[in-house]
Design a protein around this nucleic acid. Structure first.
Length: 262
DNA sequence: ATGCCGGGTGGAACCCGA
């Protein structure tokens, strides 16, 4: 089964690209980020017409995540919001379970805070959010289900994950603290699906709209799927749908897709 | 380039993103 993540940068502005990509790729489960829409504003009908079930965790104007799936999640398994801070009102996390051939699969769609500029509460919010994510991952890993934490992590893990590392030295995406927090997730036993399956350089998932970043392939790899051991042992192919960045009115991120052999 | 582009809100100019 195909499981994908895509920061769509506004689902209403991107509905034509979304339906075209769903038709072309036919993924089984899709994690969307930055839907920039309330639950009621999600263009549900266009997606349902293609046979997808829709679960949203929306927010007015910013953020917002969703799960699309050909089969509805298991009853009562959808959960919204990242545990650990009841006062956090930003919609950045939704997860659900599916039972596939007797195997339970838990999939989360997450939109990790950007964290810029440094030295502000935005960066401390990013780090505290990553700490909450780590605690949640520890709790979920103890279930020993196939677990997939997919989304826009807003972290450039290593120098080879960007064209020009020097340009990112002062950026929250490439801070030692951000990268260390991401590494702590890997150290729990989670596998970075893209990095585990390619030795190629210049593997990116985001290209800025500005300064011809796409044309110059000045990209970064910040959209990740992290897999528990139970999921990693069933990992097939991994793909980045780079061509979608060249479409009309594209998102600045492209879909990342894994094949889970269940 | 301390936002060059682009989506969102709200109805102009400003917020936000990476």
């Amino acid at each position: 089964m195909l499981i994908a993540t895509w920061n769509i940068n506004g689902v209403r502005a991107r509905i034509d690209a979304l339906t075209a990509w769903l038709t072309e790729r036919s993924p089984d489960i899709v994690c969307l980020q930055e839907i920039k829409s309330l639950d009621d504003g999600f263009p549900r009908q266009a997606v349902e017409a293609l046979g997808y079930h829709v679960e949203t965790h929306g927010q007015k104007g910013f953020n917002g995540v969703a799960l699309l799936s050909k089969v509805a999640p298991d009853n009562g398994s959808v959960s919204r919001g990242l545990p650990g801070d009841e006062s956090d009102e930003q919609s950045r996390f939704i997860e659900a379970c599916w039972t596939v051939n007797g195997q339970r699969v838990r999939v989360a769609s997450l939109y990790l805070p950007n964290g810029n500029p440094l030295g502000t509460e935005k960066f401390t919010y990013k780090l505290s959010w990553m700490q909450r994510l780590e605690a949640h991952a520890i709790a979920r890993l103890s279930d020993e289900d196939a677990l997939i934490l997919a989304g826009d992590y807003n972290v450039i893990p290593e120098p080879e994950d960007c064209r020009n590392p020097a340009a990112w030295l002062g950026d929250a995406l490439y801070q030692p603290e951000s990268r260390a927090a991401y590494r702590r997730l890997l150290n729990l036993g989670l596998l970075d699906a893209v990095r585990a399956t390619t030795a190629a350089g210049e593997v990116y998932t985001f290209w800025d709209y500005q300064a011809g970043a796409w044309q110059k392939n000045n990209g970064i790899r910040i959209d990740h799927l992290l897999l528990s051991p139970e999921a990693a042992s069933r990992l097939g192919s991994v793909g980045i749908d780079k061509h979608v960045r060249g479409w009309e009115k594209p998102s600045d991120h492209v879909p990342v897709v894994i094949d889970l052999m269940l």
